[in-house]
């Protein structure tokens, strides 16, 4: 039992969360969706992430869920992300049941709320599949190409570059708190006290992190200035050169056409089936 507890606690250590995040962000695996043009993917995503809100037919929703599961599977999503989503979903379903039984609601109310959960699930899976298979660099270029301001798209890719450094520093700051702080003497039932202590640390460690980051940004801003970033904001050449590699191919078009065909056939089938 003690071994098991330690095992579970080890798994959720900062170190492991860091590794999972890094794998998600820097895995560089080639996936089904990753091969597509990022602009096509963004357009596809913005349709399929909004569509479920306007559908009230459960059969169509269920039909939409299937490709999302397939894409998520092929996107080799990190187990951590899936775990977090599963916890979220489970707690939501539990809360729906509890709420409807405690307040004397009928099963119909539960059904309606479950449909809502289904919609959320479709959208979350679509987001996970798209964003974990798209290199943030490509995402940022796609946004630039679709007319977002350069500052914004640079921000995305800069965040991508800074992420590992921030995580590393965050971890070191937590170490600093631990090396001078005092952990609760008794661990409490189910280690609740220890858990609370760690949660508290993981929150307050953000303050020094923000201050340290603010300090180092000064150099970054100067460096951006001398390396022509401000210049690129006004010159058209930089944008043109940067985006020259983006090309829509037959593969992208095929993907769009197949998605459309699938959606149309779902609606057609959905008009015959009703739960």
């Amino acid at each position: 039992m003690e071994l098991l507890k330690r095992n579970v606690l080890d798994k959720i250590s900062v170190e492991n969360i860091k590794l999972e995040l890094m794998r998600t962000a820097f895995g560089r695996q080639s996936t089904l969706l990753g091969k597509l043009d990022p602009r096509i993917l963004i357009i596809w995503y913005s349709v399929f992430a909004v569509l479920p809100w306007f559908i009230h037919n459960e059969a169509v929703l269920a039909g939409l869920l299937i490709p999302m599961i397939v894409f998520t599977f092929f996107s080799k999503v990190s187990p951590l992300v899936l775990l977090i989503m599963a916890i979220g979903l489970l707690s939501e379903v539990t809360y729906i049941f509890l709420a409807s039984f405690l307040f004397g609601g009928s099963l119909e109310g539960v059904w309606a709320l479950l449909v809502l959960t289904l919609k959320i699930l479709i959208i979350s899976l679509a987001s996970i599949a798209v964003f974990s298979s798209m290199d943030p660099e490509k995402l940022s270029d796609a946004m630039l190409s679709l007319g977002m301001p350069s500052q914004f798209s640079f921000g995305v890719s800069y965040g991508y570059r800074m992420l590992p450094i921030l995580i590393e520093e965050y971890q070191n700051l937590i170490h600093s708190y631990r090396l001078r702080g005092k952990a609760p003497e008794r661990k409490g039932i189910l280690r609740l006290r220890s858990l609370l202590y760690m949660i508290k640390l993981s929150m307050i460690a953000f303050y020094p992190l923000i201050l340290n980051t603010a300090k180092r940004i000064r150099t970054t801003v100067e460096a951006l200035e001398v390396r022509g970033f401000t210049y690129s904001l006004v010159s058209k050449d930089a944008k043109r050169l940067k985006l020259a590699y983006l090309r829509v191919t037959w593969r992208d078009l095929l993907f769009l056409v197949l998605s459309l065909l699938y959606a149309v056939s779902l609606f057609w089938a959905g008009s015959y089936i009703h739960f």
């Binding site: 210049y231 058209k236 050449d237 940067k242």
Partner: peptide, 18 residues
């Protein structure tokens, strides 16, 4: 260093200047 990879970093400035 503001870019994710070594190569991106090397081309950043000449790209900015077009």
């Amino acid at each position: 260093l503001v870019r994710p990879t070594v190569y991106d970093e090397a081309i950043f400035a000449p790209l900015n200047f077009g």
